[in-house]
Amino acid sequence: MTTLQSAPATAALSPAPPARRSPGLLKRLAGRSTGGLVRLGLLIIALFWMVPTLGLLVSSLRKPLDIQASGWWSIFTAPASLTLHNYTSLLANPAISRSVANSIMITVPATLLVVIIGALAAYIFAWVEFPGRDVVFLIVVGLLVVPIQVALIPVTDLFAKVGIFGSIASVVLFHVAFGLPFAIFLLRNFFAQIPQELLEAARLDGAGELRLFTRVVLPLGGPAIASLAIFQFLWVWNDMLVALIFANSSAAPLTVALTEQTRQFGTNIDVLSSGAFLSMIIPLVVFFAFQRQFVSGLTAGALK
């Protein structure tokens, strides 16, 4: 009897559990952040963000008289008026077709050289010991803050003395010189995060520095290299200042050619819209192609 009577008394004296508080407004919003409502909102924002691009695409597929008569949104009531005549006329222009080839001949070498030289230099700064390594790396990082406008006149004089001013090689060399500091800074910080034990194990297996760089560092550095290639390609392809100064009329890229078209024909929106969309679609194709390499590089680095 004593034991049975003491149990309820003990239960009565024990404190009651605290009442659960209802989650606040911020917590409820955070809990719904992964729901369909937020995804719908992001989709709507993305659609609004794509409206100018859609308008540029539709304008590039319309006739000049239709562009002057109504807005691009009127195409939804008359979709049969779309035509590829603007693109055929644009590519039939020798200046435009030559400028597209010049853009490719400028952008591809400038991107490849920056990636290759930057990766080699980043590996040296990250894993090769030599006197003054940190000082030299700080100098390279300091070059990031140097604007290109400071070097335009001295480099122009240098290229004129060498005899390459006005050629594609002058534009490529200028982009490579100003793209290397960022490439070395980006890749060096990524390569430095590779476990040292992995490199030491490869050295014990007899791997030299070159084989270590190509077989170990480059596969693990795939994400950073893909990102650098995307950035460099977009910077060089969309550049107009450097090409406008260092390239003559026969070596001018697409950005300069479109600028000259604007000066010649002030209201030719059909030529400018198709040329602008052509100038935009090529970097997009390159971006999505490198995006696949970026994802594969992430997976390879995780597996290793």
Score class of each variant (00 low, 15 high):
F125C: 08
Q149K: 09
V216Q: 04
L198M: 09
L180A: 04
D157L: 01
F182E: 11
L199P: 02
F213S: 03
F182T: 10
H175I: 11
R203G: 01
Q193H: 04
F165A: 11
L144S: 12
F130K: 04
F125D: 03
L173N: 12
I153K: 09
E209M: 09
A160N: 08
V145F: 12
D157T: 06
V171S: 14
A183S: 10
G132N: 14
L120F: 13
V136R: 02
G208P: 05
W127G: 04
F159K: 06
L199W: 01
V216L: 07
P131F: 10
F185M: 12
L173P: 13
I164Y: 05
G166T: 15
F190Q: 05
V136G: 04
R188S: 14
F130V: 00
I124L: 08
A151V: 00
T156E: 04
A169H: 14
L158Y: 07
I194F: 00
S170N: 12
V145K: 04
S170E: 11
V136M: 06
E200A: 07
K161P: 03
L220C: 03
D134M: 08
A121I: 07
L138G: 15
L199R: 02
L144Q: 15
I164M: 08
A201M: 14
V171T: 15
E129V: 05
R215S: 07
R188H: 14
V140A: 13
F178T: 09
F137M: 14
D205H: 09
V162E: 06
G179C: 06
F182K: 09
V115E: 02
V141Y: 01
L212G: 04
A207E: 04
I148H: 13
V115P: 00
L120C: 14
I194A: 00
A202M: 09
I139H: 04
G221A: 09
A121E: 07
V128K: 07
I116H: 11
V135P: 05
L220Q: 01
L198A: 01
R211E: 12
L138D: 15
F178M: 07
Q193I: 05
A207C: 11
F191G: 01
G163S: 10
G118W: 08
L220V: 00
V135S: 13
L218A: 01
I124R: 00
I194C: 03
I153G: 02
G166S: 15
V146T: 11
P154L: 08
I164D: 08
Y123D: 08
D157S: 02
G221H: 03
V115I: 12
I184W: 07
F213D: 06
V217F: 01
F125V: 08
I116V: 15
G132H: 15
I194Q: 01
A151E: 00
L187V: 14
V216C: 05
G221R: 04
V136H: 00
K161N: 01
V171C: 11
A207H: 03
I184L: 09
Q149H: 10
F178Y: 09
G166Y: 14
L143C: 08
R203W: 09
V172Y: 02
A177H: 06
D157W: 00
L180I: 11
V172D: 02
G142Q: 12
K161C: 00
E197P: 06
A177Y: 01
I148L: 11
L218I: 08
I116G: 13
